[in-house]
Amino acid sequence: MRLLIARCQVDYAGRLSAHLPMATRLIMVKADGSVSVHADDRAYKPLNWMSAPCTLTVGPPPDDVEAVAAAEEASLTEVWEVRNGDGDTLQIAIGEVLHDSNHDLGVDPGLQKDGVEAHLQVLLAENPSAFGDGWTLVRREHPTPIGPVDLLFRDHTGSYVAVEVKRRGEIDGVEQLTRYLALMNADPLLAPVRGVFAAQLIKPQARTLAGTRGIDCVLVDYDALRGLDNAEDRLF
């Protein structure tokens, strides 16, 4: 991971446009290629970012960027351009650098699931029909270069489906599954792979984001999977 603290201005161009004027910020470049820009507040959430897979190129500041920087009384040393597969760009114009370091964090063991979430994964692996007729389990914890996807199935058509299991489905889980799918679909032995986001509760924002990524959302009834909720015993 590269950590850079510098004066910078940031411009994002894609489905929306955003501009951050010149200020001192933290820029993080992770091993998977993702880039995020942070201020000294807002907890973990970056001001702007580009998720992997993306490409980073570094070059001299062009005249139009220099003009903006000059108006803000800053001299630029270089400009980073981060671009993803959809053509969105994140342009970071670097001024004075206060800190620049690289750190090898090694292989992360991943988030340890709580008891309910881990048990959900086991139950879904044992009950592929929770997703539809004709589904079969390929394996649990299917490895990718950035960590394992919880479950890999084949659906009734024989196509691969990657399933990420959460107790509470939020935006971070959708982003995680998106990264897994990008890597799995780059493998000709697996592609095409579609994604399913499975959770006991899925927040509206996560459901909306999943829809834009072509990811299906499935609500999981934990008690029903455990056999504690017997449909034959219901009055209605």
Rank of each mutant, 00 (worst) to 15 (best):
195 G>D: 04
90 L>N: 02
142 H>E: 10
142 H>A: 15
156 H>R: 13
14 G>I: 01
127 N>L: 07
71 A>N: 08
212 T>L: 11
138 V>C: 02
131 F>P: 12
52 A>R: 11
49 W>G: 00
2 R>G: 05
5 I>H: 03
172 D>E: 14
89 T>V: 14
133 D>W: 02
56 L>P: 00
222 Y>T: 04
191 A>W: 01
119 H>I: 05
128 P>T: 07
104 D>H: 10
6 A>M: 13
25 R>Q: 09
120 L>Y: 01
52 A>G: 01
181 L>V: 06
170 E>N: 11
12 Y>M: 02
91 Q>Y: 04
13 A>H: 11
233 D>R: 14
146 I>T: 08
19 H>M: 06
25 R>G: 02
224 A>F: 06
58 V>W: 00
64 D>A: 11
148 P>F: 05
211 G>H: 10
221 D>T: 15
6 A>K: 04
167 R>Q: 13
164 E>L: 08
81 E>A: 08
61 P>N: 15
57 T>N: 08
115 G>P: 00
187 D>N: 13
192 P>M: 08
139 R>V: 09
205 Q>K: 13
98 L>F: 14
176 Q>H: 12
187 D>A: 10
16 L>D: 12
79 V>W: 03
16 L>I: 12
150 D>C: 09
97 V>M: 01
112 Q>I: 02
53 P>S: 05
76 L>A: 09
36 S>Q: 14
19 H>A: 10
232 E>H: 09
231 A>I: 15
111 L>P: 00
83 R>F: 09
100 D>R: 07
74 A>L: 09
27 I>V: 15
115 G>R: 05
75 S>M: 14
69 A>V: 11
25 R>C: 06
112 Q>K: 11
210 A>L: 14
38 H>A: 04
1 M>D: 05
191 A>S: 13
80 W>K: 05
13 A>V: 12
122 V>D: 11
